[in-house]
Structure formats: C-alpha cells, structure tokens
Amino acid sequence: MISYLPYPVRIDDITVETEDGNLKTFKLVFENEAQQKAWKHVPGQFAMLSLAGQGEIPIGIASSPTEQGHLLFTVNRAGKVTTALHQMHPGARMGVRGPLGNGFPIDTEMKGKNIVIIAGGFAVTTLRATLIYLMEHRRDYGKITFIYGARTPGMLLYQKELQEWAKRDDVELHITVDREAPGWNGLVGFVPTIAGQVAPSPENSVALICGPPIMIKFTMPPLEKIGWTDDQVYLSLENRMKCGEGLCCHCNVGPTLVCKDGPVFTRSQVRQLPLEY
C-alpha cells in the first residue's frame, strides 16, 4: 500500500552552490532512525520534498546510496515550494517522501560496461549520485568518462568534489563552460562540442545524459556518428508531478507515466513516446 505521508527530516546543512545563489544543496537528516535505516535508493531516483503549508515537489536525489546517514538535494529556486525552501535555515523540519521512480540500471545494463556521463547545467544532480556510486563500486564498471558543462565557472555545481575527482586517475573528467571566463583554465565550449571531441567509444558502453532538451538534441548527432545507438543511451525525463506513485496522471507522456515508469528511459523508449515532455 502506498503511503503519502512524508518522513520527517531536519535540514542539517545548506550549501549555496552557484554564484547567482539560485541553487542550494540541502543536506537532510531523518528525525526517525528506523526510517533512515529503511531508506534505500538507487542513483537516478527522485523523492518528494515536502514543506508543510507549501506543498510537495519532485527533486532528484543528489546523494549516492553509499553516502550513509543523510540525503542531499540540490534545488533550483523556481516556484512556490522551492522559493520557500530556499528561505529555510538549518534545523528546520521538512519532509521527504520516496524514493520514487526507477533510477539508472546500475546493477543491470550498466554493470561491467564503460560508463559515459554527460551532464549540462543543474541536471547533474542525480549524475553526481551515480558517479559517486560508481566510484565506490569501481571494480564493477569499466572506464568512466564524465563530461559536465555549465554556463560559467560559477554555475558549476559541486566544485569541491569536481576538484577531488579531477585528482583521481580512474575517472576521465571533462569540465567545460560555455564561454571564456577570467580565471578559468579548463575547457571552453558547449557540452555537445566537447562530447564530440572526447568521442567516447560505444564499444561495451552505456551513456547517461541529463541536461536541457536543447543540449540533448545536439549531443546525440556526434555520438551517433561514432556508432552509439539509442538503446545505449539513458535519459531522464521531467514532467509536472503530484503523487509520484503513478496515480494522479499529471506526468503522463502518452501511456507512460514519468514518475512510475521513469524518470530514466533509454533513448529508444523516449523516441516511441508522443512529444509531451
């Protein structure tokens, strides 16, 4: 039986992620220890963040299941609930309901393969969870390539972690910004361009792509040119959601319910859907 009752959590820490202040990462700790122990999620899943008096919003889980004891959510300030959330302080009580959705196939299709992660903007959140999970289980996977782009250096999320990952030799990191910026010595160019230059081999590989629709649209042609097929590419869809359990029908894309059947789909699955996302 479904429960719509969120787990009570406390905001343990808030990190302002970007220079414009519109993205904050919330570290949430369960009030009830048993609930924390029972919580199990897969990278790519999402949860409903619940603010009493405001409502619920579906947000991708940014922490990896391997990070015990807390959950991380990186939230862009956009609507009613996210604005209220951005005004909250550590120690405040809120709720989390989930985990919801299917998540990336970390234990099935991805196992033993080379993993290419391509992220644009703040869609990187669930991919952060994935990358950390992969690194914790490094021997289960082949080569890992991580391509991530943002508008400006200041708009890159998780900058400390990016620096740490850059030091590792078992992850190939390509961080890019759209335009030249003072103090930026890294790659410059749009994600699709960089993806084309990196040209990851499709051999025994899986790609996870998250980002704005326009980025996904232009990332595919260079990959297809070097032999990637739609079945190897995983995308994460977004739609307005209310229940997260496949009942309220808000997120339907044709017969598919993003909250229940997704949010992760292969590109070939997405191509069969009507354009309603």
């Binding site: 719509y4 603010l51 009493a52 008096g53 405001q54 409502g55 619920e56 209310k242 229940c243 009942l247 309220c248 029908c249 808000h250």
Partner: peptide, 18 residues
C-alpha cells in the same frame, strides 16, 4: 481519477488535501 495535491493553512492549522 486524476488529482492534484495542495496545502491549505488557516490560522496556523494546515492540511494537505487532494
């Protein structure tokens, strides 16, 4: 059978309805 979910608060007492 579609539903929407919303919070209503009146003078400090709140409820979440569908």
């Amino acid at each position: 059978y579609c539903f929407d979910v919303q919070d209503e608060v009146v003078r400090g007492a709140g409820r979440r309805i569908r």
